[in-house]
Design a binder for these strands. Structure first.
Lengths: 119, 119
DNA sequence: CTGAAACTTAGCCATTGCGCTAAGTGTTTT
DNA sequence: AAAACACTTAGCGCAATGGCTAAGTTTCAG
């Protein structure tokens, strides 16, 4: 059960890191860090056709790094801060390995699971 | 000079995140967190031809996440912890944006953005 | 000095990634 | 009602990714 949680976690990491591997997408996240924005507002600084830009938005959304919602003809995007924690956790996990503290890692995972359950 | 620093930083992020976007490569980093290892030692857990595995090693090395050295016929790989800090810094920077904190670096970026707009 | 070991190089193949244009859909504005 | 706006869908082209096999190269063991 920790295993399945870890697999899910790992699957997310593929998408998240892939999403972060592009400068356009990182710039979009930087912009959204200051607050929500529409697609065209986000696209404006980039010298790119709109459909090309939209692909970046889809990748960001699929990775869970942003959330979008359409009202009327405008789609508004917002950052999903939770996903940054997934990256942070992976980094922490890695450091735990360096420091030979794999036991505490398991403890951490279990603790997080309990937190989830009690929500 | 800040610019060249930023470019280098951003350029590095492309490679780093790309490297981290693959589960095989993350697993290799996990293994190397416990200490250096040879190519064949690292490759052993994976059901993959050696040349395929070597590509992952090259990508990790190019991204700066690992360092390798050949002695005799054996190439030994070790983790490069410094590169993890680059990711950590990016995360911190992102949080700083959410929190509306503008240190010198971000102030610079925003200023440049405004300059672009007013062109 | 011959052969096994540990990579290494070269090249093929299928899929994915990232850009484009052209045309379509649904909302607002005039 | 017509036009403008803000996406959205469809499909093309090319380069990069991630796997493979076959055939080197270099080093070490016997």
């Amino acid at each position: 059960m920790i295993l399945s949680l870890m697999d899910q976690y790992s699957g997310q990491l593929n998408g998240i890191f892939q999403a972060l591997a592009d400068p356009t997408r990182r710039a979009v996240l930087g912009r959204l860090g200051k607050g929500p924005a529409s697609i065209s507002e986000l696209a404006e600084p980039f010298d790119m056709a709109l459909p090309s830009f939209m692909k970046h938005i889809h990748i960001l959304e699929d990775s869970g790094m942003i959330r979008t919602r359409k009202e009327g003809r405008v789609r508004t995007c917002a950052i999903e801060k939770k996903q940054f924690a997934v990256v942070q956790d992976w980094l922490s996990e890695q450091r735990a390995i360096w420091e030979g503290r794999t036991d505490r890692l398991e403890q951490f995972v279990i603790t997080e699971q309990e937190k989830e359950k009690s929500k």
